[in-house]
Amino acid sequence: MKIVAVGGGKGGTGKTAIAVSIAKMFAIKRKILLVDLDVDNPCTYTLLSSKPEIIKEIYAFKPKILEDKCKLCGKCVEYCPVHALVLIPSKKILFIKTLCESCGNCMIVCPEGAIKEDKAVIGWIKEDKMDNLHLIVGEAKPGERKTDEVMTETIEYVEKIAENYELLIFDVPPGTGRGIYDAFKLADLVVTVTEPTMLGFHDLKKLYSLIRSMNKKSIAIINKYGLKGGVQDEQEEFLRNNRVQYEKIPYDEYMVKAYVSGETVVEAYPDSPSARSIKKIVKNLEKIMFRSA
């Protein structure tokens, strides 16, 4: 079983549309698991007319104060690095859930053993099965700050069922945090999607710092190639200097049109230049991942 992680820059580069297109194309012949790790705002399913259902809840550690044991000494308040605990004089310890980082300091410093480990839901794992293409979505509770934890748990869940599939595709959100690191760590190949704008280039460079430090094999896709005034030349030079193989998807109106109508461009406009580039990329990936013609 092979694993590909598709990562990229901020909203709009087309990374998810590309990841879903790749998944759909591979699913014609192979059993594929597509994993949506954009836990703040997962949208792979919008391009698949899918309605994934919750199969598991994700928890984070939260302290529980045992009021009968608590002597209101305030040590926990002192050692909470994010001020999630407040001592209400002569009354109780107030816990502010939204600030809690789940570090566990409070539990350790309480001299009375009055803080126990409790948990709170921070997100969910959802699933949908569509013939050869199965979808797992990691979703964080709205406003939840521990998004890396939601991603990591989703990845751990997926690792357990991975052997049932020929190919696992992670749709990884932009950034360079813990969750993204965990996804890249497992991947046999990292596919980076970028666009020829300065911000896209800025994000690409940051992503490659991480990829290089992890020594991961990768290929890059320059989406919206040919954008007037775009920095594709600089990007290509950067990729060449870093010995990264890259592909191009030309900028055309069809990708946006397909996205708006909730479809992938390979289905909606299969003869468009962008769709044909994606198919070519998939053929290439097939070769790289499965060494077949």
């Binding site: 308040v77 994010v82 001020h83 999630a84 407040v86 001592l87 004089p89 502010i96 600030l99």
Partner: peptide
Amino acid sequence: MAPRGAGVQLGQWILN
């Protein structure tokens, strides 16, 4: 200067 929870830290002090 609190990285997070500045309002809480101030609130705690106001109570104290």
